[in-house]
Every structure is written in C-alpha cells, then in structure tokens.
Design a protein around this nucleic acid. Structure first.
Lengths: 239, 239
DNA sequence: CCTACCGATCGGTAGG
DNA sequence: CCTACCGATCGGTAGG
C-alpha cells in the first residue's frame, strides 16, 4: 500500500497514479503542462515532515527506540499513516541517510568549487573541514548524525547503497591529504589520517553546543592546527 | 526480587541477605570468616555471564534492540532470570558501562605508572594513546564501545555517575597535552585537542579490524604523528 | 533460577 | 490518510 517506495524501479510503481486520481474539479480543463494539484503539494509536504521528524527522532532516541507512532505524531499524522509513504520503518531510515549524504556531498562539492584551483592544499583542507562541521553541526542537521550512529540498523543492501555515497564523499579528501603529506605538513599516512580526522570531526556531534563558546570557524582553525600545524610547518628562523 | 541492586544505598537493601538464606547445611557450624559457598560462586559466574553477554549484545544490536531474553540466552538462562540479578535492563546497561570505565581507568593508571617520571611528554602521550586503543580494540572489549554509543539510553542519575568516571579518565590526559602545547608540539588548544583526539581514537571502533594490516602499535604511531608530528617538531637544519 | 503469565507497545495491514 | 485491528515481542513479576 506504500505509495512512495524506496526504489520505484524495483517495484514497477507508476509515479503519480494516486495523485492524478485526486483531481477533483469537474468544470476546469487542464491546458498545457499540468500544474501540481493542491493535494500533490500536501503530500510532498507530508512526506517531508515525516522524513524530518524521523531524522530528529532517530537521532534523539535511536532507530529502535523511536516508534513509527512517534514519527507519525511529529508529522501531525495518526498511527499507521507513515506506511502510506514508506513501505517500512527501515526504508524510512534509509531515505533519511540517503538524503543526508546527498546533501552533504552537494554542499561539499559547492564548497570545493569555490576554492581557486591554485590554492594551497591547506586551504582546500580548511574548506573540507569547515563544510564538514557545517553539515554535522549546522542548523537542522540530524541526518548525518543518524547516518553515523545507526549504521548497524541497515541491512546489507542498504549498507551497500550508502557506502557508495560515503565513499565518494571521502574520496574528495584524498588528493588534498596526499598533497599535504607530500609537503610534510601532514605527518601520518594519508589513508589512516583520513580515518582519524573523520573520527575527530564526527565525534563533535557528541559534545558541540551551538550555544557554547566555539564557533564553527574557531573549531575549524583548531582542527587544522591539530592536524597540519601552522601554514609554514617549520618556518625559517628569523635570525 | 532483584538481588544485586544498582545502588544498595537508595533501596535500603541489606547486602548478603539472600545469600545468607541460601546456606543450607544444618550439620555444619561455620567457624571464623565464612567461606564462599558453592552457590555463591555460581551466582557470581552467572552474573558475569549476564554482564558479558549484555555488553556484546548491546554493542552489536544497540541497547533498545537487544532484548533481555537474548541476554538471558547468551548467559545460558531462561527468559526472566536476568531480573534475579539486575533490577532492570537499564541497571544492567549501567553496570556494563561502569565496569568498562573502571577497567579502562585501572589499565590507564597502570600504564602511566610504568612511564618514568622524567620521560618526555610525547612518551606519556604515546602510552595514553596505546592504552586507549588497547581498551577500545583489544580482545573482549565491548564495554567501552557500549559506553561510547549508548549514552542516550542512560537516565540523568546514571549519566552523572558515569560522567565522574569518564571525567577522571580524561583528566589524566590534560597535563601531558598542556606540556606538549607549551613545547609547541601540539598546535591546538589542549582542551579542544583532547576532544578531537578522543574522537579520532574512539571512531576506530567503527573501522578497525583485528585481522587487518594495522597493529595497535602501528595505529598508535600514526596517531602520534598526526597529532604531535615528529619527536623534534622543527629540527635544526643540518647545514 | 525456572515457569507461566501480565499489560504495554510495536511494526505493519485491510478496508475505506 | 484515518480507523480498527493483528500477531509478535517486549520488560518485568509472582510464586515456587
């Protein structure tokens, strides 16, 4: 009975079928490209509300402890209604992670595109770290924490799907880390360094408070200093 | 009905009451300090099995998704029997975390005691990191991962109790980090550095494989290089 | 520590 | 998307 399935291709679902049936006005003849009906917009909003409520509750209580009834209530719906939009609680978790990663990757790409091609590797790393903090700690960012801490609740196929997204996201860091290693600014092997750096940044969701003293820029500067030290690793003595 | 309560003080329980009642032999008069009866030893072993099974299952499935029946089965018991040893599933989680932290703190203290007082701060940091990896990734180490990833399942009082243990554990790192910062080897502010470093190390439970290429010593060397670089941060030029 | 059980809650579905 | 419901499972308990 679920309308919006996780992967329409695997189910043969015809998109829009249910929505077309909800076109009620008899005296109006649609001309040109059909506009979205009121009910279609509503349904899109409802789906959004479910996803956002799920992200928030999955993060706050964990996947297993957050009930689909909680999520329904957060979206202003009654008990079983989320299953009209998602075939299972697990599929909803997958969508939350997928959307989180898609947004993180898009944000990262946009940030990197803003860095001049001839900028030093350190500047690229600063950009990557700053964007990572933004995605992790910025407003309305429950999606990535859910992805980080509910991995075990995915099944094998879902893990493979998310792995592709995280793999691409992580790969964007490697040229920069290798360049910094070649410079001598990054002292650890780049592959291991990436794992440690991601851990250091990801852990911040456990302790960072937006009302605390630290800004995301300040945090970025501290992380940069910790991992690659000063801009000049060993400045020439001014003697 | 629970025999071993989380905090006897808050319940007025008289320790040992149930155990004394289990002294069955009428023809024997106890002399001097009473020896542990067979059933007491058994009960201790059973309790151990519950705790270890709980740690493993809490880690593998998460606190909410691991059922007390799973845990009972892992300890070779039937359905409701864990509640003879623990007053609630939550109290069991607390004991797991408590034991994990107590062992981590003891291990850390022993490791630090083995470092000469005049050893360089870098050596103390190496010792702390190496021990942290051991506690986190060594054999039979499910307790600390549970503590790291099930914090939200504790109630306020339990959090306060565990916080005291983690606070003491973390405090042991600060003199060393401050010394390295004063030396110029650690470039970030020590308080923030500690948070980043713990994150980097703690995250390793997500990706480390004991059958992988990395040894705990190798991991320690990489982490040390990443955070405080070479032993000599800026070696004098050999010109 | 087992047996048998309780009330509550859960994910999910049928039928409208 | 709601209503009413199902079977399963859960934490926990009584009574022995």
């Amino acid at each position: 009975m679920a309308k919006n399935l996780q992967t329409a291709a695997t189910t043969g679902a015809v998109p829009g079928t249910a929505a077309n049936a909800a076109q009620p006005l008899p005296g109006r003849r649609p001309r040109g490209r059909p506009r979205k009906t009121h009910s279609e917009l509503d349904e899109g909003n409802r789906r959004r509300l479910i996803i956002e409520g799920a992200a928030r509750l999955f993060r706050a209580k964990g996947f297993a402890a957050a009930s689909t009834r909680d999520i329904a209530a957060a979206a202003g719906m009654h008990g079983g209604s989320p299953f009209y939009h998602f075939e299972s609680k697990n599929a909803l978790l997958y969508v939350v992670m997928q959307e989180g990663m898609a947004q993180a990757a898009a944000s990262q790409q946009a940030a990197l595109d803003g860095v001049p091609a001839n900028a030093p590797a350190r500047e690229r790393l600063r950009t990557l770290i700053r964007n990572h903090f933004q995605v992790l700690l910025g407003p309305g960012s429950d999606f990535i924490p859910v992805m980080l801490y509910e991995w075990r609740s995915l099944n094998d196929g879902q893990r493979a799907g998310i792995s592709q997204l995280t793999g691409a996201y992580e790969a964007q860091w490697m040229p920069t880390l290798r360049a910094l290693h070649a410079d001598g600014a990054l002292k650890a092997d780049p592959r291991t360094a990436r794992l440690f750096i991601f851990g250091a940044l990801n852990w911040s969701v456990q302790w960072f408070s937006p009302r605390g003293a630290q800004s995301l820029d300040g945090l970025t500067a501290q992380a940069l200093a910790l991992f690659v030290g000063q801009a000049e690793p060993c400045p020439a003595r001014a003697s």
